[in-house]
Simulated assay, not measured.
Amino acid sequence: MIAVIDYGVGNLFSLVSSLRYLGLDAEVTGDAEKIGAADRIILPGVGAFADAMAKLRQTGLDEVVTGQAEAGKPLLGICLGMQVLFDTSLEYGEHRGLGLIPGRVAPILDDLSPADRAALKIPHMGWNRLEIVRDCPLLRYSRTGDYVYYVHSYYARDCADSVAAVSEYGIPITGAVVRGNVMGTQFHPEKSGETGLRILKAFSEIGG
């Protein structure tokens, strides 16, 4: 079973629909026992980093997620759920994350050239091309040139050892990260058509 963690950050309907379309057993839950009994965990999320971390801590799910990941269970963070896997975020101040992947989350705008700041819209929203930079189980059914769907204004940086795929948007945007059993996608697989379904299918086979 795949536990989709519900901590009050985001609409989980499309993600669960995608998993069930693939014939996968998925349950939305914030229950520590059910998360512990699951074969794999997905941590979704939309919104602000600090709010997400506050909700994880208030529910004790920060320790649940960290403990399960450190025990070797496959964990996939999506969008904001990926960002909270990192050490820190600079979104509206500096905030501590779960620390499962070394690196930090920073504003895209700060790293763009003056010309790109004028030409590119923030948030980075819509379809963009993936460039796979490292082979990993999460992307076993994906290839460079596949398109995925993004909605974000902040991105993971200083994490070169974990980057598996990027998308160009003035700078290389971290699209997917993998560090052992801990994985993340900045884009939304559940909104990325067949490409996203292939990524979710690959995740369902990791550790199985």
Rank of each mutant, 00 (worst) to 15 (best):
V64N: 05
V178H: 07
V166I: 15
T144A: 10
S192F: 09
G193D: 11
G93I: 11
L90T: 13
I2K: 07
S192G: 08
I171C: 03
E190K: 03
L43S: 09
M82C: 11
T66G: 13
A160Q: 14
L56K: 02
L112K: 06
S153R: 10
D25L: 02
T195E: 10
I171R: 13
Y154R: 03
S162L: 00
I171G: 02
K55N: 15
E131Y: 01
L109H: 13
V16L: 11
I199V: 15
G97R: 01
E94I: 12
F86K: 03
K55W: 03
R57T: 09
I199C: 04
Q186N: 11
L200S: 08
E168C: 00
I108Y: 07
I108S: 10
G8Q: 12
I41Q: 06
G81I: 04
A69E: 10
S17D: 10
P114N: 09
S153C: 08
T88Y: 12
A106M: 13
Q186I: 07
A176F: 00
H152Q: 14
G99D: 06
L130C: 03
R117D: 13
E190W: 04
V148H: 02
G67A: 01
G175V: 00
R57M: 02
S153K: 06
K201D: 14
M53W: 09
Q58V: 01
D87Q: 02
G36T: 06
C159Q: 09
E70T: 07
D158F: 01
L22C: 04
V28A: 14
D51T: 14
Q68K: 11
Y21T: 11
D31E: 14
E70Y: 00
Y147Q: 08
G93K: 05
E94S: 12
G30M: 08
V64S: 06
I122M: 06
A50W: 01
R117V: 11
I2H: 08
A3N: 10
I35E: 11
N128G: 07
Y92M: 14
M183C: 01
K55H: 12
T144Y: 01
G67T: 04
I101V: 15
A202N: 10
S14M: 02
L109Y: 13
Q83R: 06
N128K: 13
K34V: 12
T66V: 15
T174F: 00
D39H: 10
I101R: 08
A48H: 15
R104G: 05
I41K: 03
Y147K: 11
S18H: 09
A52P: 04
V16H: 07
S167N: 05
I199M: 15
I206N: 07
I206E: 12
R20Y: 09
P123T: 13
H124Q: 15
A160S: 15
N11M: 07
L61P: 00
D51K: 03
C136N: 13
M125T: 14
D31G: 03
L43G: 06
